[in-house]
């Protein structure tokens, strides 16, 4: 792994995004706007936003980053730039890490924006530490990136990539405890839910748990991030049939 080539790749991806201000705007603003909308809809039921607001901070970044990453990487695979890069001294690991860094940076900005707005404007008064919430939001964004990279290998067109979103996100959303607490799910579903990354993100935000409990949930998240990046790297082929 050569840090220079990784950083060149990160810089190139950020430059691509800079030429596309609309995407950056959507990336940064959509999660904040959705959280604000949610706070507003719940304004007649004080307390509810305090419970589910923080949890959604882990959901929106995941969805947004998943979509953006899968489409951008897919484009790279179909336009031929990926094949071109593979004739050059760039390794798969450097390529994937370059992507992960670029989107990590966006995920950080996104999470700072959502957390700041939530605590100031939307009236979130979560007893948990704000940095833990920001960290979860960041992990969720990275997770979206990791899975987006992996997905770009399976999807053949950008249209397919977008179609994968509900198939990938909605089951996790149903099982993560937002609608029915994980403890009340049928046993088989609970076993699945307990190891899903979105559940871990929401558990990591919950209150009144021990440090080791949080550490465990973050470990699941980080495991999925690296797993997704690993799958993404493994599906890149220097030689094609």
């Amino acid at each position: 792994m050569n840090p220079r080539r990784i950083l060149f790749t990160t810089q190139r991806i950020l430059q691509q995004l800079r030429h596309d201000p609309r995407t950056i705007g959507l990336l940064l603003l959509v999660p904040s706007a959705l959280t604000g909308l949610l706070a507003w809809t719940l304004s007649g039921r004080p307390g509810t936003f305090q419970t589910i607001g923080p949890q959604l901070l882990g959901v929106f970044p995941l969805i947004v980053m998943f979509l953006v990453t899968s489409v951008i990487t897919l484009r790279e695979r179909t336009v031929g730039t990926l094949e071109r890069l593979f004739t050059l001294p760039l390794t798969k690991g450097e390529f994937i890490t370059g992507y992960a860094l670029a989107f990590a940076l966006l995920a950080i900005l996104q999470s700072i924006l959502v957390a700041t707005l939530s605590y100031t404007w939307y009236g979130l008064a979560h007893q948990g530490v704000p940095w833990r919430i920001s960290l979860v939001a960041l992990c969720a964004g990275l997770l979206g990136t990791a899975f987006g990279l992996a997905l770009s290998a399976v999807a053949h067109t950008e249209f397919q990539a977008v179609q994968f979103m509900p198939a990938f996100i909605l089951p996790q959303l149903l099982l993560c405890g937002l609608f029915v607490p994980v403890g009340q799910l049928p046993v088989a579903l609970r076993l699945v839910a307990d190891v899903l990354p979105m559940t871990a993100a929401i558990h990591a935000i919950s209150n009144f748990q021990s440090t080791s409990y949080y550490a465990g949930q973050f470990a699941i998240l980080v495991g999925f991030i690296f797993g997704g990046l690993g799958v993404g790297a493994a599906t890149l082929r220097r030689r094609t049939k």
């Binding site: 080539r5 190139r12 430059q15 030429h19 730039t81 071109r84 004739t87 050059l88 001294p89 760039l90």
Partner: peptide, 29 residues
């Protein structure tokens, strides 16, 4: 890798970057 210069049939450069940004990236690699 890098010993062969390649122009693929479909121009495999980044359409959303400037000419110079493209070249700087490939030069960096």
């Amino acid at each position: 890798r890098g010993a062969l210069g390649y122009v693929a049939q479909s121009s495999s450069v980044y359409l959303d970057l400037t000419v110079e940004e493209n070249l700087r990236y490939f030069a960096g690699i």
